[in-house]
Design a protein around this nucleic acid. Structure first.
Lengths: 175, 175
DNA sequence: GTCTATATGATGATAGAC
DNA sequence: GTCTATCATCATATAGAC
């Protein structure tokens, strides 16, 4: 069985792990080489630069999504929603990994706090002992609403808020 | 009019600006002091450390949200949604600022690409010439759905996807 | 309050031996 | 393919003069 040098793959595996754990920027080449039991310069035999390594891990997601949004025509919206969900689901590891970069700023533990806040909000909205379905609906509503504040930050509150609240309520299944 | 040394405030203002523009981590103390026309060590007269400066900018948001979620009992859900929206809206600058840390990784321009993808998706879903309301609903649906993939990454696809898609459809106002 | 000068320590990266 | 040795760069942070 011809087993070609798999060091490159092992580097990527370790990098993925550390990136997911502590964020991309917070991970140094030294940490990666240490965990592999090799030295830093050895990495440079396999990757031209740190950026090259990062790219090799993120690029598949980029390409996949690019392909999805470009190679597609208008059609059944619900079908599109389903396929889009599959897409982000498939790449949820890399996506989380990038979001970790925020968490591991660890300025005031924003990441963990944020999760706690959301749990509390969901409780306030729907009470205790929730089904998974209820939790998911709550995430869609609350998460989507937060996105609006950022995405439409430049618009007037009155233009955004009523619709956003209504959409969130619909996602939650509120009457 | 006793005007106390407002250098501290000016530092925070410049820091905010640079943080929002290029991300927190990507902004060095040197850049901040340069723009103020002072030297780096001068900053240390006003802030004990870099972290101290960052904290002073982020902390108000943290405290505000903490207060919101703790000092509140269950009640009308729709009212809660509205107040929560106001909350994130109020702090959207700081929130965006932190999200910028992802964008300015600038690994493959993920930030900008992401916006382009979403625009395209919204077009695929709802076509052209959208009202603001339609755009907002699309953001809630798509954004909320993406959040699910991350938040429930550990669960089974079948458990999450159907509900997430349904909730997104409801947010979008699909039949 | 702000300066000059400097300590200290990471990091990404390269040269060249083996 | 991996090593040792080393570089340049840049960061945060401190000491002490003015």
């Amino acid at each position: 069985m011809a087993r070609p040098s798999d060091t490159k793959t092992r580097i990527q595996a370790v990098a993925r792990e550390l990136f997911a754990l502590q964020g991309i920027q917070q991970t140094s080449l030294r940490q990666i080489s240490d965990r592999l039991g090799i030295t830093k310069p050895a990495l440079y035999y396999h990757f031209a630069s740190r950026d090259d390594l990062v790219r090799s891990i993120i690029e598949p997601m980029i390409d996949d999504i690019d392909r999805f949004v470009t190679g597609r025509e208008r059609g059944d919206p619900r079908r599109l929603l389903e396929d889009y969900f599959d897409l982000v689901w498939r790449h949820r590891e890399v996506i989380s990994m990038m979001l970790r970069d925020l968490n591991t700023l660890s300025y005031l533990d924003v990441g963990e706090r944020f999760m706690a806040w959301r749990r509390r909000l969901v409780f306030l909205l729907l009470g205790d002992e929730l089904t998974v379905a209820q939790q998911v609906r709550a995430t869609v509503g609350l998460g989507g609403m937060s996105d609006c504040a950022v995405e439409y930050a430049h618009l007037a509150l009155d233009e955004v808020k009523p619709v956003a609240v209504e959409a969130a309520a619909a996602a939650l299944g509120l009457p």
